[in-house]
Design a binder for these strands. Structure first.
Lengths: 234, 234
DNA sequence: CATCCTTTTCACAAAAATGTCACAATTAGA
DNA sequence: TCTAATTGTGACATTTTTGTGAAAAGGATG
């Protein structure tokens, strides 16, 4: 934990304070931002190691800021943890397909917060940092919401695209069907989990009409995972 | 909701009943315990997926039971949701401090209860499984749910993987077959204990097709144990 | 309202994982 | 050494999970 710092973005001073204390006791350096725009400035000015972001904020909301960060190449790989209030439970997860790496539900125990921060940091430093989202021959154009294979546009439906994008944002990580429903579908509980299978299938088919690349792998009993073919990065 | 069940601990039968109904309608299996000591017994006997715990109880209080659970390695990661009657801030803090994962304030709506249970279950299954785990030449990638030997992925079935993960999580400790059935199989009582043998065998075979490393040792009359080869640990 | 596109559900096929069994091998103790 | 208990082993049947195609259900657009 040498160079960087953790940026905490929340409009409630009490929460900020509490979080700051927790993290500093765990040995992190912390800076605070009271709103999204300010945070955005700070991030551009001096890139933090991680952003802890309240979802509900006046002005530039957490979800919006996340979207913005993830769209910019320079900040796309910046780890983001979202803080969601317990009353937001029903529509809580919507922010996650914006690209957040994890979320913590308030109220949270200090232990949990720190554990999550460490986990996300570990993940992001060791594993991946792929700002322009690409793997193998497949590249995503996040502005246009399209995917290209060797330059050729792939015929993906909206859901297929979101699914692919989400999986590519978290390579090599297994997601259960219910997690995918949460994060790609937006937390609609009333959808049959098997629906995920069907879309995975379509996605696979559209990704490689002829050859079955095994970029999207099935993990029996667990869910699905995206693994970039070989060398792939940046 | 496959193997496990949710343990509801409350001394008021009416509350118990109400909770049980809610959860069962949501598809969970439920068992009841009228007091803390009884609950403790049940937990040790057959591990639940989650414990719903009344804060105020005669004898072994909720907070005390939580502390006790969190102290034992085997039950430390058991998710606990506390039911608290007051809206007192102190209570919540204490509860979270003791290691509870969340709390619900009475009176609560059935929907909230179920939502909270689901949320905690989801969290507990995904979030905490992140520490890198390695011993000898074998390393687990817990996000990807894979085991690698010298970098090569090992062909483990889901159960084999879980078994290995569990054993590696508690190195050098002997587990009886019934303990393993509890922890790895999810407490399904109707399985022949010998089944464990078979899976241990498969795991061993897949771990080292040629040479029998003796990482997984048999302790006659007692069970099995995982011992890391030599120096190894993270 | 008709039509097109997307998404969900359903039924069945295919594949893989799991539990059980019979029997072989090993161990411990008399 | 012999015997009984315990564990290893391979095969097999069953159950569970996933793949697949097509039809139904929504939803937007004109």
């Amino acid at each position: 934990m040498s160079g960087g710092y953790i940026l905490v973005v929340d409009d409630e001073p009490a929460i900020c304070d509490m979080i700051q204390t927790c993290l500093e006791m765990a040995g992190f350096r912390v800076r605070l931002a009271a709103n999204g725009s300010l945070a955005h400035q700070m991030i551009i000015n001096e890139r933090p190691d991680l952003v802890l972001l309240d979802w509900m904020m006046p002005m530039l909301s957490g979800i919006e800021l996340t979207r913005r960060l993830k769209r910019d190449e320079l900040t796309a790989d910046l780890p983001v943890i979202m803080l969601t209030a317990r009353t937001d439970e029903d529509d809580r997860i919507n922010g996650l397909d914006a690209g957040a790496d994890d979320y913590v539900v308030k109220p949270f125990s200090p232990r949990e917060l720190v554990a999550r921060v460490k986990a996300v940091l570990r993940r992001s430093t060791t594993a991946m940092s792929d700002a322009p989202l690409a793997a193998g021959k497949i590249a995503l154009n996040r502005e246009a919401q399209t995917a290209t294979l060797n330059g050729e546009a792939l015929p993906l439906g909206p859901l297929e695209y979101r699914l692919l994008e989400f999986l590519m944002l978290h390579p090599n990580r297994v997601f259960s069907r219910s997690q995918l429903l949460d994060r790609v579908w937006g937390g609609n509980v009333y959808i049959d989990e098997r629906t995920v299978d069907v879309h995975i299938r379509r996605l696979r088919k559209n990704l490689s009409p002829e050859q079955q690349d095994k970029m999207i792998q099935t993990v029996r009993g667990a869910g699905y995972r995206f693994s970039p073919p070989e060398g792939a990065e940046e």
